[in-house]
Design a binder for these strands. Structure first.
Lengths: 186, 186
DNA sequence: ACTTTTGTCGACTGATTAGTCAGTTTATAT
DNA sequence: ATATAAACTGACTAATCAGTCGACAAAAGT
């Protein structure tokens, strides 16, 4: 593993456990097994590291969701695929998911441009709009629908993390919750 | 205003803006208009201040919700009262609400005992259980139902903060969303 | 072969931090 | 009026932090 990557991995776990300012760069370098100065060779400032880690994790998550939610025939199946992939990613990558939350609440989120934030949403917006046009989905604002769906995903994820169910039960809950959600918006 | 209170208010705004470790105690004291030492007269450590602020805000929120959601006749109206009160509180006290989120994601949350966390939930659990017994609410685990409801509230709050609608529109959205939620769990 | 660029190191520094302390003021009790 | 306690102050300190720097090694280019 490259040193840059080692630094990012170490930073992820430390940030999630101790918070941004609770994690000194020296500890990150130590955990990554590199010298102090090496960290600053790859990331000019601590802030740059924090933001880079966000971009990294976000891309990782987008790639996972993309890969695991192939194009289905019906709108419902497509949306379900997205929903499932997001949840499975967050369950398999708890630290990554928590980092996204942490970053979103932190002042560093303002370092990310508006377009950057909106980029990944466009695809799902189009999907929802098509659903509305086809009279499948209730005629509500798409950003409102997405908010409801996102918070649903977030909430279920929390629930699944707290209650450590066996895989089968998890799977069933995720499916059932999607049906609940789908009924709500259609 | 008492100095203790001034310190808590100053800390709230600074923590929300700059994060826990991004806010030095000296800045808190400065913004509160008290001497450095005075802060440590009221709170032995910075951590104690952070935890005390959480308890304070939580009590404030609980008091607001309690006061603004009087006992209604029907289960639906009671739950709606809770839902509305929570949302109105978060809209009128954005910093307080964000602080709760921040604290919940931080390592300091582990300082709060299990009972402390569960305390305020008991009442709503009983309400949900009764709803299930009376065959009004779907027979799902009560903690699961609460998770769905909480994340709904959280999501709508986010949406309302981003889109600064006029009061009337806000009110309508909150009502409509509750109906969506109610349909989902009944 | 040699020059340049890139990567790596860890000791170092100036600035900042949480928390202390000795002493002063204000409130309360007798 | 006097004594005692509680509130309050700001200068101080030991520790910690983000980031620098000069030396050296490895790759890459010419």
């Amino acid at each position: 593993m490259e040193k840059r990557e080692k630094i990012l991995v170490a930073a992820l776990y430390l940030f999630v456990e101790f918070g941004f300012h609770g994690t000194p760069t020296s500890k990150i370098a130590q955990k990554a097994g590199v010298a102090n100065g090496t960290l600053f060779h790859y990331f000019a400032t601590k802030e740059e590291l924090i933001v880079a880690l966000y971009s990294e994790v976000k891309m990782q998550m987008a790639a996972y969701v993309m890969q695991n939610s192939k194009l289905e025939n019906s709108l419902k199946e497509t949306m379900k695929g997205q929903y499932l992939a997001t949840l499975y990613f967050s369950l398999d990558n708890k630290s990554e998911f928590k980092y996204m939350e942490l970053f979103g609440l932190s002042p560093y989120i303002s370092m990310i441009s508006e377009e950057e934030t909106e980029k990944n949403k466009k695809w799902i917006y189009d999907l929802l709009r098509k659903g509305i046009t086809d009279k499948i989905i209730k005629p509500l604002p798409v950003d409102y629908l997405l908010t409801l769906m996102s918070s649903h995903t977030y909430g279920l994820n929390q629930y699944l993390i707290i209650n450590e169910f066996p895989k089968a039960k998890q799977h069933q809950l995720i499916n059932d919750t999607f049906e609940l959600l789908w009924d709500m918006i259609t």
